[in-house]
Structure formats: structure tokens, C-alpha cells
């Protein structure tokens, strides 16, 4: 008689390579991974272009010290004009024909390992700019799946400056997230701020440097707080999902677009059975 019991919580590695399996296990255990970008030239191009769009919006010359310029942008304009700047850079970047391909190149290998090699990518890459002590750019604790995102999505979060502590974002690790999610009803009379207070002791603040990229599951609670670090945070974020996995409110066309349709899928989608038979 076989007495072995299946450990159902263990992910099955199948034919994944040892490296792929290790990355997947880490991602499931921690809900995120932070890695060096896979294409540093693409990263530098993205950051320089973002700084260029910002400088143009402000009517000043493109900076030589790009990192310093971004970190100290709060010295150049008041918070009241921040959203105009954000929109100018957001629109400028998303109009660059190379932008999305370069963004994907930053973490292509890791995304393909964690998500799949047949992918849909968000059509417009988001930009966050969070100045010190600015309370107009806060993201209260949330999980994107609570507001229309598919749980199959992974977020690629890219800092354009070094981010740490309150200049960065927080994430609730999977075990704590599962525990709080199971008793979510008990929080229903409170606010998102009340929820933050409850989960605060268990949060992970993600320290991440320029040159690195964060991949995380938006099924976990996350958000940001008032930036108390004295420098401005610049970050971008973009969602990737397996092309044929379930979509929720963020749909193909409006929000996502296929980026790596494989030949067999093209053939399959085009296939029609022969016709002309009579019953």
C-alpha cells in the first residue's frame, strides 16, 4: 500500500528548469521578486526620456544628472502643478514607439518564467511621482483584484530613482495576506486607513534601487504612504498576464494588448473545420 501523501501546497515544477522552479517558488512564497533589469541600455533610455519630457514641460534644459534631477524635482515645482507634469511625462512616454518594447525587455526572462511566454501587456504604462510630504498622490491599501484586475496579472514596477522606506511601496506578504483576507468581513465597518493600521506591523517595505525591477502579484494588499524621505519617488508600473488566462474588467483592447502571440496559437485561432457536409 502506498502511504505517501501528496503535499498539495507544494507547487508542481513539472518540466521547469531548476532556475525557473526556484524563481517561481520564491514568487509564490514572497509574493514578489526584485531583480536586476535584464537590459540596462533600455532602462537608461527610459529614464533619460522621462527626464527629458519633464524638463521640456518645465521649460528647462535636459539635465546632465538625471537621477539628481528626478530626486529633487520637488524643488522645481509646487505640488499643485504635479499632476500636469505627471500627465505630460505619461503622455510623452506612452507616445514613444519604442517605450513598451523596452519596458518589456527590462524583465522579459523573469516575466516569461513567472507568467508565460505568450503574453498580454498593459497598453499604457503608468507613472507615479510622489514628492516628499505630498498627500495628494497616496494609494491607500488595496489589492488590484478588488477593483477589476485579473488575479492572473503580475505587475512590473520600475523605480527611476532609488526607493526605500516611505519613498517606496509596501506589500503584505502572502501568509499574512491570506490570514487577513480570511477575516476580511470583520473589517467591513472600518475604512482603508483602519485596515492599514491592522496590517501595518506585518507589512514589507520594498527597498529597491535604480537598476532593479520589482515583479509582484497584485492579489496581495499593497499601497504607499506619505513620502517622508526627503526625495521624490519616480516609478512606473505595468501589468502582464498570460494571453489566454481570464480577464476581468481590464480587457483586451481597452487595457491589454497581445505582445507575443505564438505561431501555433495563430494557426489555432485561424482554424476552421472543413465544411460542405450534409446531415
Amino acid at each position: 500500500m502506498c502511504t505517501a501523501t501528496a503535499k498539495l501546497d507544494d507547487p508542481i515544477d513539472g518540466f521547469l528548469s531548476a532556475d525557473e522552479a526556484a524563481l517561481g517558488r520564491r514568487f509564490i512564497a514572497d509574493g514578489h521578486v526584485i531583480r536586476s533589469v535584464e537590459d540596462t541600455a533600455a532602462l537608461d533610455r527610459i529614464r533619460s526620456a522621462a527626464a527629458g519630457h519633464a524638463a521640456r514641460h518645465l521649460g528647462i534644459a535636459a539635465p546632465n544628472d538625471v537621477g539628481g534631477f528626478l530626486n529633487r524635482i520637488h524643488e522645481q515645482l509646487p505640488v499643485a502643478k504635479l499632476n500636469d507634469l505627471r500627465l505630460a511625462v505619461f503622455n510623452g512616454m506612452n507616445a514613444e514607439p519604442w517605450f513598451r518594447r523596452s519596458y518589456f525587455a527590462l524583465a522579459r526572462g523573469a516575466i516569461e518564467t513567472l507568467v508565460g511566454n505568450e503574453l498580454a501587456m498593459q497598453r499604457r504604462i503608468n507613472l507615479s511621482i510622489q514628492m516628499p510630504d505630498d498627500d495628494s498622490s497616496l494609494l491607500p491599501v488595496h489589492a488590484d483584484v478588488w477593483s477589476g484586475d485579473s488575479p492572473f496579472e503580475v505587475v512590473a514596477w520600475l523605480p527611476l530613482v532609488d526607493c526605500r522606506k516611505t519613498k517606496s511601496m509596501f506589500l503584505l506578504p502572502p501568509a499574512a495576506n491570506a490570514r487577513h483576507a480570511a477575516q476580511f468581513g470583520t473589517y467591513s465597518k472600518g475604512t482603508a486607513e483602519d485596515l492599514f493600521r491592522v496590517i501595518e506591523p506585518e507589512l514589507t517595505w520594498l527597498d529597491i534601487k535604480y537598476g532593479e525591477i520589482l515583479l509582484f502579484t497584485q492579489n496581495l494588499m499593497h499601497g504607499n504612504r506619505l513620502n517622508r524621505e526627503g526625495e521624490t519617488r519616480w516609478s512606473m508600473n505595468c501589468r502582464f498576464k498570460s494571453l489566454f488566462s481570464p480577464y476581468c474588467d481590464k480587457r483586451l483592447g481597452e487595457f491589454f494588448e497581445p505582445i507575443t502571440i505564438r505561431a501555433a496559437s495563430r494557426l489555432g485561432m485561424d482554424y476552421r473545420h472543413p465544411t460542405g457536409f450534409e446531415a
Partner: peptide, 13 residues
């Protein structure tokens, strides 16, 4: 690509 993929992709959880 968008229209075809949408016909085959899963729609609901």
C-alpha cells in the same frame, strides 16, 4: 490580434 485573441481568451473567473 486583439479581436481574435479576445474570442479565445478566458472571460470569466
Amino acid at each position: 490580434d486583439i479581436l481574435l485573441t479576445d474570442r479565445f481568451a478566458a472571460r470569466e473567473m
